[in-house]
Write a protein that binds this DNA or RNA. Sequence first.
DNA 1: AGGAGTTTGAGAACCGTTGTCAACTCGGTT
DNA 2: AACCGAGTTGACAACGGTTCTCAAACTCCT
Lengths: 145, 145
Amino acid sequence: MNDTTRSARTPAPPRMTRQRAAVADALGDTDEFRSAQQLHELLRSRGDAVGLATVYRTLQTLADGGDVDVLRSEDGESLYRRCARREHHHHLVCRACGRTVEIDGPTVEQWAASVGAAHGFADIEHTVELWGTCAACRAADERSS
Amino acid sequence: MNDTTRSARTPAPPRMTRQRAAVADALGDTDEFRSAQQLHELLRSRGDAVGLATVYRTLQTLADGGDVDVLRSEDGESLYRRCARREHHHHLVCRACGRTVEIDGPTVEQWAASVGAAHGFADIEHTVELWGTCAACRAADERSS
DNA sequence: AGGAGTTTGAGAACCGTTGTCAACTCGGTT
DNA sequence: AACCGAGTTGACAACGGTTCTCAAACTCCT
Ligand SMILES: [Zn+2]
Ligand SMILES: [Zn+2]
Ligand SMILES: [Zn+2]
Ligand SMILES: [Zn+2]
């Protein structure tokens, strides 16, 4: 008896492909939040191109698996980054270059949970992101004015 | 001599129109965060239709003037609401119905500012929003399962 | 090597939002 | 009340990011 007829409950085996590796790589290289399109372009210029759709799919998968963090830029674009810690945390991101500092605010966590509960809300989630201009970008800005 | 030749520095005189009033009204009615499209539909069904583009423009103007708060839903749509307080604050929003509780976290404010400064970032802004399922929606959900 | 099933990618489709511009309105003037 | 200049409207096109489609290409297992 063979089990090629994989039973319905078996999720689906991931598969290693050049594309997946490339995207994962690109993310590993940078320490900054990057958009799907930026990554797509980066890969293209780097020589091993990957279809845009694939970049999106891969990022989504990585995000679902908790391997990369996603956040929405101020103008609605999704930005991705492979953070050092897998545990829940927040970010201080440079609006200009994407440079990021990982933050964790134990206080904020409790505060969020308690505020939610206090008003009878369930399944509370919180969005806490900090945006600013990093020292480097500030300097670059001065120089050109 | 007349001054119909308005000097360049004069900003621009706002004008009261049926449309602007309608949108403001719709926002005044509800206490929940609503999308531009929802408001557009609401107005249409209510009898005094307003062009979608105008709804967007008006909301933007109101937002710029600080008359309404804007926030991005988890799937990227902009949501608008006329909050009670004009001062800076945050929200606890029901994912399902938009019902909202205004929140202010003095602690969070300071925390955000200091964390940003500590890492040499300037022009710090913070996004702090809480999402959950309100008691009412939770009850409705039970009932239908 | 062979084959079942997964993944890819070019391009179309989607969807919220903004731009276009001629027709229309508001509000102050005559 | 009629007039007029300038702000405003709205149907529709255009945009930009993201997802969908599906035939061709590839992985992985035997
Ligand atoms: Zn920077
Ligand atoms: Zn947190
Ligand atoms: Zn609700
Ligand atoms: Zn705040």
